[in-house]
Design a binder for these strands. Structure first.
Length: 686
DNA sequence: AGACCCAGGTTTTTT
DNA sequence: ACCTGGGTCT
């Protein structure tokens, strides 16, 4: 018996089958908490350990960088770090980026293309809609951005879109605008030698379609392909996979249709539901033993999810015992809800002695977090709110990144326009229009056009001076970043100094506190460069920019914010993949969960899955909170119980209405005594 | 360029 | 109720 059979130790029968079944198409239906990651990592180790393939012949695709990093770590525990390093474990986007950096010249782009962030694309789309004169009529850049992204992810091009039949005049008009904007946006990106997130996928698909030799090479290399969270794949990702495994067909997809909650972003749950249609000989393995939750929680979750029609039948079970029933609080309004939740949390802690990190408060939308933050602060309970403002979308961070992007890719117009006059150099609209004209007529990049403006003495003296300074800085640093005459972060720090950026911040900040915060963000970008440079043998500006665009938390304060600290507050969406001993699901009303808009749009199945995901985050105990009234859009409105609540078998729920009545009476009676803050607010709230 | 005002909208967000 | 974005005025 060879030593690699140890990779089968301790697996239950279906898990073991999933690991051992290495050849041909395999669909693993992995229910929540059923040991999915364990199966994938063991399977990888098994394939390598049994000599079926070398590490570089394996491709494992995940949806987040975090998942990829975790998977690599866990594989390394099994196979050793040297092997694990050779395996391609990455997100769809990172994988495609890698392909495109090498081969994009075949599509007429330069390999130093930059990635257009969502913010960049938004700016660009504003310009496009302006130039086409289609804003106004209830079409704005945001709408187009979402529509274009959806189109790209479902494989629509401006041409296919144009050919679609419209049902009425409004639709036709919209379609007309949409195709125009889409086409113009595409050509603007092309001119800027930029790709947006979605392009990373579609371009790779095109590359493979137009250059079969490249596809064949990829097929030859990746003989075993695994995909995590398969229920979240969209049409383009599906086509990429099909192309890649065309020959070997060793495709193993792992996912749970019941946890498909990203349909609104183009994820197509049919990919998992109809897997055997495309791979008739597929082996289907269901993992339904749950190692996370109590039987009560699973019974509740099962009771809810069975109301969805199009799904793979499966019933999670566990042997962890019944545990405590689900508690259901009915409270007055959102403030009562928050207060009651905090009381309840404190009570549970007194009884069980568990730590704050064991609690999560889950809500449907970010707006709902506010009252909980207030109540927790008031009670002196440390907490952490996840999600929200993206570090890389802050103005000062975008400024610095844009400088770096112009340096890395001379044609990146969005970045160029953002920083050409920051800090003020007297380069205004007039000059830029001049330059734009030269771009158009002579096919030059904006930078070259500006140089032409200088040569032809088309601008006033002080503007000329400004242009000279700007182009000089860019040129100097383009050379420095290429030659790497110093560490990346040192060069960047010089750049920030040379453009007097901190003075600019000082000028534009309203308060010293704000200035301090913004200067620190700039410092954080430089630190991120240093961190990046320290972790690689061949630091390159381009690779750093790629990482910042693909990895949303690459630049934030190291890994410190990864570890939980205090009670966790987050949306249900961001809780997917996590688990907590105690879960509070709040806002259990029609309008919140299911969300109002989903009700009108008839997207109830996905909302139900959302509730299912929320429930199955809980390990020991789940508490539901429902408010009788809630302030929505500024008005106080009465709420009806969430329709999903009735789907939980009633014997599993203990209703805590008394608490609510007391709350209401208290509110009606004399002015309530302001609860004094017992301790000073927690240091780290973020 | 910066301050001010009004209108509109208002989920979720792995990359 | 609140925030954003765009437009206008100084």
């Amino acid at each position: 018996m060879s030593s690699h059979t140890r990779f089968l130790d301790g697996l239950n029968p279906p898990q073991r089958a999933a690991v051992e079944c290495t050849e041909g198409p395999v669909l693993v239906l992995a229910g929540a908490g059923s040991g999915k990651t364990r199966v994938i990592t063991r399977r990888i180790a098994h394939i390598i350990g049994s000599g079926l393939a070398d590490p570089q012949n394996l491709l494992a695709v995940t949806f987040t960088n975090k998942a990829a990093a975790e998977m690599r770590e866990r594989v390394a525990d099994l196979t050793g770090a040297a092997s694990a390093r050779e395996i391609t474990i990455s997100t769809f986007h990172a994988f495609c980026l890698q392909v495109l950096r090498r081969h994009i010249s075949h599509l007429g782009y330069r390999s130093n293309f930059t990635i257009s962030s969502e913010g960049d694309s938004h700016t660009l789309l504003r310009r496009v809609t302006d130039e086409l004169g289609v804003q106004g009529e209830s079409f704005d850049a945001r709408t187009f951005q979402a529509a274009i992204s959806l189109a790209k992810n479902t494989g629509e091009t401006p041409d296919t879109l144009r050919d679609k039949p419209a049902r009425n005049a409004t639709e036709e008009k919209y379609q007309q605008h949409m195709t125009d904007v889409y086409a113009k946006y595409e050509s603007a990106l092309r001119a800027a030698n930029s790709l947006d997130f979605d392009d990373l996928l579609t371009f790779t698909l095109r590359l493979w379609a137009e250059h079969p030799g490249l596809l064949a090479a990829a097929q030859k290399q990746y003989r075993y392909v695994m995909v995590d969270e398969y229920q979240d794949t969209n049409a383009v990702q599906y086509r990429l996979l099909r192309a890649l495994v065309g020959k070997c067909r060793n495709l193993c997809v792992v996912g749970d249709d019941d946890q498909s909650i990203y349909g609104w972003r183009g994820a197509d749950v049919r990919n998992i539901l109809e897997f055997e249609r495309d791979f008739p000989d597929a082996k289907v393995i269901t993992l339904d033993q749950n190692y996370r939750s109590t039987e009560t929680i699973l019974a509740a979750a099962n009771g809810v999810i069975r109301n969805n029609s199009a799904r793979r039948e499966k019933k999670l079970w566990s042997s962890l015992g019944k545990g405590r029933p689900i508690d259901h609080f009915v409270v007055g309004d959102e403030e009562d809800e928050a207060r009651e939740a905090v009381n309840w949390l404190i009570q549970i802690r007194q009884k069980t002695g568990v730590s704050l990190e064991d609690f999560a408060i889950l809500y449907r939308s970010n707006l709902q977090s506010r009252p909980f933050e207030l109540a927790l602060r008031q009670a002196g309970v440390p907490y952490q709110v996840y999600g929200g403002q993206d570090f890389f979308e802050r103005a000062e961070v975008k400024d610095i990144i844009s400088y770096l992007k112009v340096i890395a890719n001379p044609r990146d117009e969005t970045a160029f326009l953002r920083v050409v006059n920051v800090p003020r150099r007297g380069i205004g609209d007039v000059t830029l229009h001049l330059a734009h004209e030269i771009c158009r007529t002579e096919g030059k990049s904006l930078g070259m056009a500006m140089a032409a403006v200088l040569e032809r003495s088309m601008a006033p003296k002080n503007t000329e001076y400004g242009i000279r300074r700007f182009l000089g800085v860019i040129q100097r640093y383009r050379k420095r970043f290429r030659d790497l005459d110093a560490p990346l972060d040192v060069i960047a720090r010089d750049l920030v100094r040379d453009i007097d950026y901190l003075d600019e911040l000082q000028r534009t900040s309203r308060t010293p506190v704000q200035y301090e915060a913004r200067a620190q963000n700039v410092e954080a970008v430089i630190n991120a460069l240093a961190t990046y440079a320290a972790g690689t043998n061949h630091p390159r500006l381009h690779a750093f920019l790629d990482a910042t665009h693909l990895n949303s938390d690459a630049g934030t304060e190291s890994r410190q914010d990864m570890k939980r600290d205090g009670v966790s507050l987050m949306t249900i969406h961001s809780a997917k993949g996590l688990e907590f001993p105690f879960v509070f699901i709040v806002g259990m009303e029609d309008g919140s969960l299911p969300h109002e808009r989903s009700i009108t749009e008839g997207a109830l199945d996905e909302e139900r899955r959302l509730f299912y995901v929320a429930l199955t985050r809980g390990k020991r105990h789940v508490t539901l909170f429902e408010a009788l009234s809630r302030t929505r859009h500024g008005r106080e409105r009465m709420c009806k119980t969430s329709r999903f609540l009735a789907e939980i078998p009633p014997e599993l729920i203990v209703c805590q209405v008394r608490a609510a009545r007391e709350m209401v009476e208290e509110r009606v009676a004399p002015p309530k005594p302001k609860p004094k803050p017992k301790r000073r607010p927690p240091r780290k709230t973020l």
